[in-house]
Computed example of a mutant assay.
Amino acid sequence: MPTRWADNDQYGHVNNVTYYSYFDTAVNGWLMRATGTDITALPALGVVAQTACRFHGSVSFPDRLQVGLRISRLGNSSITYDLAIFRETDAGLELAATGDFVHVYVDAQTRKPVPIPDVIREAATELVTE
């Protein structure tokens, strides 16, 4: 994942709120690739109910990033993702941030919690760790 010019703040590094955008992009991009589905067209939507980020190092434009993703909890209507953002360097990867991201699936019309759609659950099972 590339950083963008607009990601930097006045202090010359990627602004903290942008890391949440990286998390969102990584999770939803993976879901779309893993399911082969337009996840926005499903009758149930994954809405973000909780997210957290811990910073370990600084990144700035034009850094390139890699985002690691696993699932630490696969519930009936929610999925907890654990993420790690790494900055690519000549020497390898440097840990920049870790965090978690919780999707709760809700009916697209009523916004009430519903079971995780089968196509999502099937893909998610492959990333579950214990």
Rank of each mutant, 00 (worst) to 15 (best):
M1I: 00
M1R: 14
P2A: 00
P2I: 01
R4S: 10
A6Y: 08
D7C: 00
D9G: 01
D9L: 02
Q10G: 04
Y11I: 12
Y11S: 12
G12N: 10
G12D: 13
V14K: 05
V14R: 07
V14C: 02
N15T: 15
N15I: 05
N16I: 06
N16H: 14
N16Y: 06
V17S: 11
T18H: 00
T18K: 06
Y19F: 09
Y20C: 01
Y20R: 00
S21D: 06
S21R: 15
S21K: 14
T25A: 13
T25K: 12
A26T: 07
V27N: 10
V27D: 08
N28E: 10
W30D: 09
W30C: 01
L31K: 11
M32T: 12
R33Q: 13
A34S: 01
A34G: 09
A34Y: 04
T37Y: 06
D38V: 13
T40A: 13
A44P: 00
A44V: 11
V47Q: 08
V48D: 08
A49V: 12
Q50K: 13
T51H: 11
F55T: 09
H56A: 11
H56C: 05
H56W: 09
S58D: 10
F61P: 10
P62E: 01
D63K: 05
V67Q: 13
V67T: 13
L69Q: 07
L69F: 04
L69W: 03
I71R: 02
S77T: 15
S77W: 01
S78N: 11
S78Y: 02
I79P: 02
T80P: 00
T80V: 13
Y81C: 01
D82T: 04
A84H: 06
R87M: 03
E88I: 09
T89V: 09
T89G: 00
D90K: 15
L93T: 03
L93H: 03
L95E: 08
L95N: 06
A97T: 03
T98V: 05
D100A: 01
V102P: 07
V104M: 12
V104W: 12
Y105D: 08
Y105R: 08
V106G: 11
V106R: 08
D107H: 14
A108I: 15
A108G: 15
A108R: 15
Q109K: 13
Q109L: 15
R111V: 02
P113E: 06
P115F: 15
P115L: 10
P115S: 15
D118F: 08
I120S: 05
R121M: 00
R121S: 04
E122N: 07
T125F: 02
L127K: 14
V128S: 04
